[in-house]
Design a binder for these strands. Structure first.
Lengths: 186, 186
DNA sequence: ATCTTTGTACAGTTTTTTCTGTACGAACTT
DNA sequence: AAGTTCGTACAGAAAAAACTGTACAAAGAT
């Protein structure tokens, strides 16, 4: 009995090592540390989990589980599972990490790049207008200096957008192929 | 006079459009919104700025400017500038956005991927141990289920590491070439 | 129909992060 | 040497974010 309990604890410890690391890094996807732990917990669970089970398992309120589950769903990191005769909502992790994690990556970066680029264009347009038509020589001068600066930024964004579209189109998988099974070496 | 003032305001507004957007997105690099504004302000400044000028310009304390400048420097987004006979520290933005921004990108992601992968290996090892040698059949079973789950995660990390090394080695620039000047089309 | 069960909106509390003011060390000036 | 100027450490204040408990709507059971 005692040894068995010991082994259960070993198992939990092994899992916890991984869960903790996920929790520490998941902020890159705009997910909170504790919701990262939630993800890890669902990941290792034998079966899809209900909100109540999550709450129980993490010692957090059901409300938090509810909002956490929403965040994870939006990030495509978990999905609903259906089981006959079970009324409660069930969730399990999305097993395709390429899709779940890289979807988030694409979403965040393309969104950011698009917005930044849009802002750049707006600013550029106004500056061009000013550098042409302003009465004040000083303003004209400043505007053209600014335009100069925006050049390299614009080049960067064009490059970044192309990089992102590598991922959006899936072309990245031609360059770095998916691996369905990892190398078997230890 | 009045028109001139008007035009100055137009200039500021144009700049602000861009600065605000940067500030909103720079959290992807673990930089605060307000320090993002600081970056934008330095970016558009005619000359390298001192801490006092930043403080004055943003209406924030000099202390915040000091810590902000440190954060931006660590992210390789700004750099010190030297001017003869000026005692104060001067800062300007790093004009190479490829380097500054993509350096940060690489740092964050490779660090995160490495740590996660390391944790995965640790966990895997413990689980293998358990699935072989545990006395409890239940623990054995759970451990092997977990190992199964870790397979696809491992594949993902191997893939991710290769993707990141595309950036580290600069090979990405063979695939998506840098653009020194943007397309001249409007 | 009433009575449960389940998930979430919302307001308030706790925790964390950000920001500021004071104080001080280092470097420069005279 | 004493007197400035500058940048930052540190403690405390202000602001923001995370978390909880209550309350309620929707759906299911009886």
């Amino acid at each position: 009995m005692n040894e068995q309990h010991q082994e259960e604890m070993e198992l939990d410890k092994a899992r916890d090592r991984f869960i903790t690391e996920i929790a520490n890094n998941v902020h890159l996807y705009d997910i909170t540390n504790s919701i990262g732990r939630l993800y890890g917990t669902i990941f290792f669970a034998e079966k899809p989990m209900t909100l109540d089970e999550m709450s129980e398992s993490l010692g957090m309120s059901k409300t938090s589980m509810s909002t956490g589950v929403r965040a994870l769903s939006e990030a495509n990191m978990i999905e609903k599972a259906w089981e006959k005769g079970v009324r409660k909502d069930l969730y399990r992790t999305n097993p395709d990490w390429y899709k779940s994690f890289s979807t988030v990556f694409i979403k965040r970066w393309s969104q950011s790049a698009a917005k930044n680029h849009q802002a750049l264009c707006d600013t550029k347009q106004k500056l061009q207008e000013l550098s042409k038509n302003a009465d004040s020589e000083e303003v004209k001068h400043k505007a053209s200096l600014d335009l100069e600066k925006l050049r390299s930024a614009e080049a960067y964004y064009e490059w970044l957008n192309e990089v992102i579209s590598l991922f959006e189109t899936g072309e990245i998988f031609n360059i770095v192929p998916k691996r369905n099974e990892p190398s078997q070496k230890v």
